[in-house]
Design a protein around this nucleic acid. Structure first.
Length: 425
RNA sequence: GGAGGCGUCGCCUAGUCCGGUCGAUGGCGCCCGCCUGCUAAGCGGGUUGAGGGCAAACCCCUCUCGCGGGUUCAAAUCCCGCCGCCUCCGCCA
């Protein structure tokens, strides 16, 4: 949610952000009208209410005829007060509704444009040259089937398209990845968390996932709960309606959860393998910090993502996501994309967002600044490991015979093996 | 699933039966000041959060006793619904 004061005093800043996101800046004018209506109706109600209270106090002390006269006046007032209050509440609700529909501001440093207008910040490692090595790489699903690590067919049989079983070394690889991620996070001072997968509407809405892309969120209608698409959601909700003490620095949590996404609107995309699935697992970093510290914290999250990716011995690049591709909540976003040999392109493995005070305002999360005043906090998130990493790991480290070399860091989780060998069915 | 109890401004707590002087009591903690070789004690004051009026500060006003409705001139207090916690019973993994 955008600060109402900023909206009122600097509407052009908000209009500019909307334009950069490719959205209609006229939404701002509507809100400004709603804001002024809200304020005038509040003032009208409060003036009347003050009068009613004054009279009420006189009633309490008056006797006889005087009391009867006062009661007559105040009874007449009561209905008016009630009507003004209802009008003020409605104006407030309307303003809130419009405000909540606005996405966050955008960083001046983010490249302007759509999905393809990202800026490459850094490339790490060189994509492996299979042509030079003299063999055609197999894709991750073929490898996963050879290793008896991934079973898509039975996933579809049991749950439908975009579901899968990880089995054997596949299951072990994922558990290893996630455990390495948790271990690294703990080492950096994060509090590890295993989070609820179902959240209330106000939490899902507070994180900004019920806006433009709400159709990608699974909802359990009978219980009025949402399945989370990332542990960012419960971790943001964790401190909802609280005033935090950030005097000792950011509060950092590492959430482990399954993630559920309906992938509505992506029919036909990435239908093969486990690149794009309805359910996967993830370890996510989440920080609460002061607004002033947010940009620096964002860089820290990015560096921890790189550290984790380096352990997987992958080639990847870092992109600065363009303004049109930030999503509702992010002010700036960096993705790390790993090279996927059989696709001949980079695919997102991590994503770290600085949501500034956007989510915190919606979720009512504040802290006390140096002057003791309450201020909205900044929230940031970043991926430390997900199921999808297995795609890049299998493809990158495959050998000509279909076996796969295991990155050193993961070996303890697959019984110390250096190479995973194909197995008969 | 059934029965009962509870929910007050950081923590504890008075107030709720019987509506108005609650614009919420007291203690602890915390902050400021006085006193004081230092510390402690003592003394005095302050200490929920949000919104509106204002360029802003002081200030003024409104809301805030789990949440939402209702009754009433007036609700922490009466009524209804919901949520959460605790105890007991039943059922189940």
């Amino acid at each position: 949610m955008i600060d109402a004061k900023l909206l009122r005093e600097n509407p052009d800043v908000v209009r500019a952000a909307l334009s950069k996101r490719g959205e209609n800046p006229e939404a701002v004018d509507q809100i400004l009208v709603a804001d002024s209506e809200r304020r005038s109706s509040i003032a009208a109600f409060e003036a009347l209410r003050a009068e009613q209270k004054t009279l009420g106090k006189q009633v309490a002390q008056a006797k006889g005829d005087e009391r009867t006269a006062l009661l007559e006046r105040t009874k007449a007032l009561a209905a008016d007060v009630k009507a003004r209050e209802a009008a003020a509440n409605e104006a407030e609700r309307r303003f809130d509704e419009l405000s909540r529909a606005l996405p966050n501001l955008v960083s001046d440093e983010a490249p302007v444009g759509g999905e393809d207008d990202y800026r490459v910040i850094e490339e790490i490692g060189k994509p492996r040259d299979f042509a030079a090595e003299g063999f055609e790489p197999r894709d991750h699903l073929e490898l996963g089937e050879l290793l008896a690590a991934i079973d898509m067919e039975r996933g579809a049989k049991v749950s439908g398209a975009r579901f899968y079983f990880l089995k054997g070394v596949g299951a072990l690889l994922q558990l290893g990845l996630l455990q390495l991620a948790i271990a690294q996070a703990v080492e950096k001072g994060f509090t590890p968390m295993i989070t609820p997968s179902l959240v209330k509407p106000e939490v899902m809405d507070g994180t900004g996932f019920l806006g433009a892309h709400s159709e990608e969120v699974y909802r359990l209608e009978a219980d009025d709960l949402y399945l989370v698409g990332t542990s960012e959601v419960p971790l943001a909700g964790y401190h909802m309606d609280e005033i935090l003490d950030l005097s000792a620095g950011p509060k950092r949590y590492a959430g482990w959860s399954s993630c559920y996404r309906s992938e509505a609107g992506s029919y036909g995309k990435d239908t093969r393998g486990i690149i794009r699935v309805h359910q996967f697992d993830k370890v996510e970093m989440f920080s609460y910090c002061s607004l002033e510290d947010a940009a620096a914290e964002h860089q820290r999250l990015l560096s921890w993502e790189k550290e984790m990716l380096d352990k997987m011995e992958l080639s990847y690049r870092i992109i600065d996501t363009a303004t049109g591709d930030l999503g509702t909540s992010a002010y700036r976003k960096f993705d790390c994309e790993a090279w996927v040999p059989t696709q001949g392109r980079y695919r997102e493995l991590t994503s770290t967002s600085n949501c500034t005070d956007f989510q915190a305002r919606r979720l009512n999360i504040r802290h006390r600044d140096a002057d003791g005043k309450t201020q909205p906090v900044a929230t940031l998130n970043g991926t430390l490991a997900t199921t999808r990493w297995i795609v890049a790991i299998l493809e990158t480290h495959q050998l000509a015979d279909g076996s796969v070399r295991v990155p050193t860091a993961l070996r303890p989780f697959v019984g110390g093996r250096e190479v995973l060998e194909p197995v008969g069915r």
